[in-house]
């Protein structure tokens, strides 16, 4: 990397602010790294949500699938997804975006699957029966009743998927290439502690903003609409 890192062994508040300013507005290294990380988390998150929702609903609806794939999901869930990184690096023959996004998606997918499975299964039977008396059946019951009824569960699950994905992303980037995690490692290698702290601030800020301001807010709105208290 063509980066000039200044060496400071003890981080200071001013130094950190300066590094953040320089990284975002002058060299734009931090801007680029943040963009890469954000791209990865969004991609991994979307995959996790789509795959997790579909598989979760499938497991909730099919007893055969639940009995086979269901236990596999539980088994896989207990493996921290970062453990998959070396294998993914081998499979993709790269240590960049592809294996990292896969790890992020896996981190979120398990929690999506298991929450959606429970969410669909615990839709109040009376709602389903009521819809049946009005002529709804089969896939329409799933679309018009079960899925909307489990929107609150879905939202809580996406918040968790994002949180797990974000943590997995940082771990993966520390070991892989590109993104905020890699830049943090580079800064450490150059003993630029101000930059290390600066990147940690970015990571914390993104995590907090998304989890508390985006997801929690959305969750609150939806929960009150659905007549639940969060």
């Amino acid at each position: 990397m063509q980066v000039e890192f200044t060496t400071t062994s003890l981080p200071s508040f001013l130094g950190t602010m300066e590094q953040l300013y320089v990284g975002f507005f002058e060299t734009q290294i931090l801007l680029g790294a943040t963009a890469i990380s954000f791209y990865r988390i969004v991609l991994g998150f979307v995959i996790a949500v789509v795959v997790g929702t579909i598989v979760g609903i499938w497991l909730a609806r099919s007893k055969a699938a639940d009995e086979t794939l269901g236990s596999l999901v539980i088994a896989l869930q207990s493996i921290p997804s970062i453990v998959w990184l070396p294998i993914m690096i081998m499979i993709f023959q790269s240590s960049g975006t592809a294996p990292i996004v896969t790890v992020v998606a896996m981190a979120g997918a398990w929690v999506m699957i298991s929450n959606m499975r429970v969410g669909i299964k615990s839709v109040e039977p009376i709602l389903i029966r009521a819809a049946q008396t009005m002529g709804y059946k089969g896939p329409e019951l799933i679309w018009k009743v079960m899925i909307p009824a489990s929107i609150p569960t879905f939202l809580s699950a996406t918040r968790l998927a994002w949180a797990f994905g974000w943590r997995a992303l940082m771990a993966a980037e520390l070991l892989g290439t590109g993104g905020l995690g890699r830049t943090l490692m580079d800064a450490r290698d150059f003993f630029n502690m101000d930059l290390v702290i600066g990147i940690m601030v970015i990571i914390a800020t993104i995590g907090l903003t998304m989890e508390y301001f985006v997801f929690r807010k959305l969750e609150k709105r939806i929960f009150s609409r659905w007549g639940l208290s969060s």
Partner: peptide, 30 residues
């Protein structure tokens, strides 16, 4: 079940994500 036999249960069993109007329309959609 069929729409020739309307059912009212002890619990209202309304869809919480739909407004009152949309709850009534929900049945009519079919």
């Amino acid at each position: 079940p069929g729409p020739d036999r309307g059912v009212v249960f002890q619990e209202a069993a309304l869809m919480p994500w739909l407004s009152v109007l949309d709850n009534v329309r929900f049945g009519l959609k079919k």
